[in-house]
Design a protein around this nucleic acid. Structure first.
Length: 108
DNA sequence: GGACTGACCAACC
DNA sequence: AGGTTGGCCAGTC
């Protein structure tokens, strides 16, 4: 299914450690699509309620989410994620430098 | 099947 | 420092 990509996105977002954030482009790159950031955005648009997608921010550390962007930022503060004075996430401190998911398929 | 849109990104003025 | 344009990829009209 085409939304398998979105499923992968959800899986990665769910793996983002608390206190860290990832950018759309970074996640897209993990999925093998360095230019597929918009795909990630589309997937986030279908954001399941159990998905902490607030940890997913723009390349600048800006939080998107239409009317909910302010709510996401509040959630990030709950996650102990430091914000800059400009209202963005401090990527140089919080950007998730985790492993790249290379079709590990550890489905057991 | 073609064109527009978009929870993006980077380059260019 | 900030706005605009192009580009990528998928979804929708």
């Amino acid at each position: 299914m085409s939304n398998n990509f979105a499923k992968n996105v959800y899986d990665i977002v769910a793996r983002i450690p608390k206190g860290n954030v990832a950018t759309y482009g970074q996640i897209a790159q993990m999925l093998g699509k360095p230019r597929g950031a918009r795909e990630v955005g589309w997937a986030m648009r279908n954001c399941p309620e159990d998905l902490p997608w607030q940890r997913v921010v723009m390349a600048d550390g800006a939080v998107t989410g239409g009317a909910y962007s302010e709510i996401r930022k509040a959630l990030l503060e709950e996650e102990n994620i430091p914000f800059q004075a400009n209202g963005k996430v401090d990527l140089k401190t919080c950007q998730w430098l985790g492993y790249l998911i290379e079709e590990t398929t550890d489905v057991s």
